[in-house]
Design a protein around this nucleic acid. Structure first.
Lengths: 240, 240
DNA sequence: TCTGAAAATATTGTCGACAATCTTGATCAG
DNA sequence: CTGATCAAGATTGTCGACAATATTTTCAGA
């Protein structure tokens, strides 16, 4: 049994998987996030049932939950498809992240324990070492970045924030990252911003912590917008 | 193949209800929100199947989707229960609303059409008439308030915001309102704040619009906190 | 009477089969 | 040859039955 442990797992939100539907649900999420089931792809119930060796009943329940998490879209009597990537929606997600994680950072500045802060600072040290070592092109940086953000959300001690970001948004974000291969453009700058954020949290400065996080995510959004503009034609309104 | 149109389509709610599971899902949501199925109540599959006259298959799928929307919690081999009311979580929800609707208001100030703004101003006129007429104790105020907020979110033209607030949070907020009977305490003040918000949107002042909405929801949160402090003392149930 | 374990019961989890609907491909009129 | 109509195939939706697990009841022993 190859139990994969050791790397930062960002999905501790699933207590158990004692039932077939739960287990398969997790497998499908992983497959979608990693792109093994590409965006827009039809989800064939008989095919997936054969693949995972289960009946269609639990499979359909898993799909229904994924529908609730907005990873798949379903049409009656037609079938379910993996959500399609759209540059516009990716930007929308980053606007939501800016709002949600800004609030998370504000509450983290208030509710994070000193031990959590210290641990997070050590994580950033690891990130720095990883960046120096691999010249900033590390695969680890992708998951590492999300790990930092996830810990902030955990530190907010706000369970609703954790549910919304952990279940709904981060899956999509990771999927988009696998798709577009973004976010590893300026790891050093991101690391510096991360340090500023944790400093503000350590100083218990709620206002500053929220502002820095919002700036950080807003910068990431603009970075993506620029990258997308080079590929996508600016047919939209460019008036100002 | 790619018939994707790029303009922001903001109509993800109410797709269809052509299937039993979809129809029953909506019925259960309404029942939960209205309190017909009280919070913490066990959801018995055989009982509900008999009630709605369907098999357990579609019912289970509906429950799985409700689980994705966080209206019910499920434990393996034990069953599903309607989410339990907790004062702490209600406050958490309002913190999330502050962040999310603040961002929605910011984007509404940018993306709302003049027609939408005009329509919303007329809605506030109706609210004012309703308040004057019924001395501020109107039942309509409850849904009317949420209607205002929902239109702002629609005006943001951000489909992700609409999904998160519409599917996940507003159901819970309405449920809590039916439970605690809150939010009708200061309708005149709320109306005044609503007018300030729509004025900021009309002036296309994004910063101000976000700030006013955050203040508005933050005030509502503090109002609830005060009310809960006067009531909160029963630490768990006691039976004879 | 109280405690603990084991049987009885009820509920959830899973499966295969059938019905309703959509999609595809073939046939035929223009 | 093009287009529409209709039949064949495939997929989704629904159902009832059986298996696995949790909860409740019962009963024996201290």
């Amino acid at each position: 049994m190859s139990e994969e442990i050791g790397y930062p797992k960002v999905v501790p939100l699933e207590p158990e998987a004692r039932t077939l539907a739960d287990r398969v649900c997790r497998q499908i999420v992983t497959a979608i996030v990693k792109g093994e089931i590409p965006p827009g792809h039809k989800i064939s119930e008989p095919e997936l049932a054969r693949t995972y060796g289960i009946s269609r009943g639990p499979l359909r329940e898993a799909i229904r939950r994924l529908e609730g998490w907005r990873l798949v879209e379903r049409k009656a009597h037609v079938g379910a498809r993996v959500v399609k990537l759209s540059a516009h929606e990716l930007i929308e997600i980053y606007r939501v992240r800016e709002a949600l994680e800004g609030m998370a950072c504000r509450q983290a500045a208030k509710n994070m324990t000193d031990a959590e802060i210290e641990s997070l600072k050590r994580l950033l040290d690891e990130h720095e070492a990883s960046i120096e070592q691999r010249e900033g092109r590390s695969y680890f940086q992708k998951e590492g970045d999300l790990d930092f953000h996830y810990r902030i959300v955990q530190g907010s001690k706000n369970s609703k924030l954790l549910e919304l970001l952990g279940d709904d948004l981060y899956h999509l974000v990771r999927m988009y990252r696998y798709q577009f291969s973004v976010s590893s453009s300026r790891p050093k700058r991101a690391l510096k911003e991360h340090r500023q954020i944790i400093d503000a949290i350590e100083a218990r400065d709620e206002e500053l912590a929220e502002m820095l996080m919002r700036r950080h995510i807003s910068a990431a959004r603009r970075n993506i917008e620029d990258k997308l503009d080079t590929v996508t034609k600016p047919e939209g309104d460019k008036h100002g």
